[in-house]
């Protein structure tokens, strides 16, 4: 039994570890549709630079990432790939659902081939609304996620059960 999973680390150490985790996230960008361009603008353009928040958008492989940003419409044909790649990410992992299509199906709510929201396939931590959300909105979503990480209980996370934050 390690220190973390038995809950023996104190509050100060826990918040220090959380702070270091939240400022060193590697993002696996799942850019599917129009939101991918806004996500690209948030990550690659020097104006809405995301690296100043400590989030590095570089990994091309899910095995090195701990944040997944699903941006764009998820279709029924694509949904198994999302699930498979989500499972390839190592714990602890977080998911941001960006844009209305990923949140709930969006403007294609009545289509025969669109999954109505990516939360039917993977568990989502932060929803960023918009069609497409401005890059600033995505940055705010990341900041909210960072706040959530700061207040997390690492022992609960280690056990692997669903996290419920009041």
């Amino acid at each position: 039994m390690g220190l973390v999973e038995s809950g023996k680390i104190g509050g100060g150490l826990q918040s220090l570890l959380n702070m270091s985790r939240k400022y060193s996230m590697w993002v696996y960008q799942w850019g599917l549709a129009c939101c991918a361009i806004e996500m690209g603008a948030a990550f690659a353009s020097p104006r809405y630079d995301v690296m100043r928040l400590g989030v590095i958008p570089l990994p091309a492989s899910p095995r090195q990432a701990d944040l997944l940003v699903v941006s764009g419409t998820v279709t029924d044909k694509m949904a198994p790939s999302v699930k498979r790649l989500y499972e390839q990410m190592p714990e602890p992992k977080y998911v941001i659902s960006m844009g209305s299509c990923a949140n709930c199906g969006g403007p294609y709510w009545d289509s025969y081939s669109v999954t109505k929201g990516v939360d039917q396939v993977v568990p989502v931590d932060v929803y960023v609304p918009g069609c497409p959300p401005r890059p600033d909105a995505l940055l705010e979503g990341i900041v909210l996620l960072q706040e959530r990480i700061q207040n997390e209980d690492m022992a609960e996370r280690w056990k692997g059960e669903p996290i419920v934050i009041d």
């Binding site: 549709a33 279709t75 294609y108 289509s111 025969y112 081939s113 669109v114």
Partner: peptide
């Protein structure tokens, strides 16, 4: 292809 097929032509009819 078809991983982004959203069914525009059917949606446009309604």
């Amino acid at each position: 292809m078809g991983y982004m097929h959203r069914g525009y032509e059917k949606l446009a009819e309604v």
